[in-house]
Write a protein that binds this DNA or RNA. Structure first.
Lengths: 293, 293
DNA sequence: GCTTGTCTTTGACATGCATCAAAGATAGTC
DNA sequence: GACTATCTTTGATGCATGTCAAAGACAAGC
């Protein structure tokens, strides 16, 4: 994990935003050096010419300064959008960058919760473990999603990158101090927490009462809706998540996930495509299946 | 459901606080009239002489006025404790009382979310349904717990009384307007939402990855910790919850819940007592069982 | 283009929990 | 105290999903 602290000089914070990493990074299991340091001034060479669908898709107020936050590609998706450009400057002072390769850990359950994070590109998974290794993934996080907030001093779960992922990091103490001056942000965070709570309740229904088929259908639809929400394509959907991770998210085994997906494929509801993409052939039928109708 | 709106005249808001209703109310399935209206002035006759362990157990700043909120028995457990007595007066103006009998519904999933609630006595369950009747209880709520907050305009779940239950009701719109003036409350609500989120994640681990035995052990310990937190006795614990509700909370059937409890009883880990109470005979062993060790 | 490691799929079999059924147990009512 | 309704317990059986095993499929690296 490489971390670059921002000083307060003007520079750009530019990320090549992809909802998921391209397929060749998905099987990456060993750390690979990723350049996250930025030149002190001038445009970032990696950003030039890159297609940034998020920035293209979502209108954003003109950035009034050069702070990395003002140019952040996920600003409109995350809690920071409660702030004006000027106020963002304050936020910027307590933020830094983190880049993770596929499979790399961000923090472990029980570690001191010194930072909170915002996903800017890629995808994260958060999970809890039992002592014998059983794992429950409690959520996948995509660009704009917030991570690490807690009332305790220790993280309540572990977080790991699903693919190459970049995050914006905030010192928790400093951020909390800032919040006192920006109740707008606090209100926004409350909204985010409530949305997450609603998702968690949906997930409980899935885990406790749905069959394998219903679980897989629900999961695919959830990914589709989520991609649409953040400006990506909702069909076909990117599926950078391994069978094992899907299983640990849905309370199943990899074998059952695989068999169930084969069933959906055979019955013509989905098609597995090149590059870990899945096309939903009959969304309505999937919706019905997901709700057990 | 009987509702009494407060006007702003001084009166008392006194509840007989019991963590759970006494056993004779537990099997109550038909509505029974419960007096919730208060006299406009003077002490509430039902409150006189009642033992209120919450008020006894938890120190509270001296109430400076006569608002019902200032005398609320769960004030220190709920979000309202972020406010001074004076500020509570504002809150009081948008609040009213609700009394439910066992099994009575407070609201259904999808209904307009016009109010939020605070449990003052008894216990609630919140749940989601599938179209064929399968049910997932996503949480039990006890005195001091908050209920109904949402970013949507419709409730995301249904809520029903587990036993005779009293709640404090707030008009959502008015409360939200008030929040703008009281960022302290917003911060408190954020903390509450985060705590609930942590609970939801624990529950996902239970639902997705634990065996029936581990689920039951986790549940009993959760009840014990929860009772302790709100000043009740942690052992033996009150268990006003039916096998069916436990099953729908843990993703099991009533039969499996019953068999598993019998197993725990047979192996000497717990004792079922008079009046729906359960004594944990070996908390450490239960903890280990709950964690799958 | 072969090797290697990981991920996915498929098959055979096992089992934890669900389902179906019915007999206690308990509390409320008359 | 008998009647009724609901809740709980127990038994017999079945099935959805887990477990174990091994053969593809795919991508990365040499």
């Amino acid at each position: 994990m490489r971390v670059t602290e921002y000083d307060n000089s003007a520079r750009y914070h530019i990320s090549v935003v992809t909802p998921f990493a391209t397929s060749e990074t998905l099987v990456e299991t060993k750390p690979r050096p990723i350049e996250v340091d930025r030149p002190l001034t001038g445009p970032n060479e990696r950003g030039t010419g890159a297609v940034n669908f998020l920035r293209d898709a979502i209108p954003r107020p003109q950035a009034g300064n050069n702070s990395p936050c003002a140019a952040c590609p996920v600003r409109d998706l995350s809690f920071c959008n409660a702030l004006s450009d000027e106020e963002l400057d304050h936020l910027n002072r307590v933020s830094s960058d983190v880049a993770l390769t596929s499979g790399q850990s961000l923090f472990d359950e029980g570690a001191p919760a010194d930072h909170v994070f915002n996903v800017t590109s890629g995808a994260m998974k958060v999970y809890k473990l039992l002592s014998d290794g059983r794992r429950q993934i409690t959520g996948f996080l995509f660009p704009g999603d917030f991570l690490g907030l807690s009332t305790r001093d220790a993280y309540a779960y572990s977080a790991e990158a699903v693919c190459s992922t970049e995050l914006c990091r905030f010192n928790r103490q400093k951020l909390e101090n800032l919040l006192k001056d920006f109740p707008k942000v606090e209100r926004r965070l409350l909204g985010i927490a409530n949305d997450e709570l609603a998702l968690a309740q949906d997930q409980m229904l899935i885990l406790g009462r749905k069959t394998a088929k219903e679980k897989i259908a629900s999961f695919l639809l959830m990914l589709s809706k989520r991609a649409e929400k953040s400006g990506g394509q909702s069909n076909p959907i990117a599926l950078p998540i391994t069978r094992t991770d899907m299983a640990d998210y849905l309370g199943l085994t990899t074998e059952t996930v695989s068999r169930t997906i084969t069933q959906l494929k055979t019955s013509g509801l989905i098609t597995l495509m090149q590059g870990n993409e899945v096309r939903l052939e009959n969304r309505e039928a999937l919706e019905e299946m997901a709700e057990g109708e």
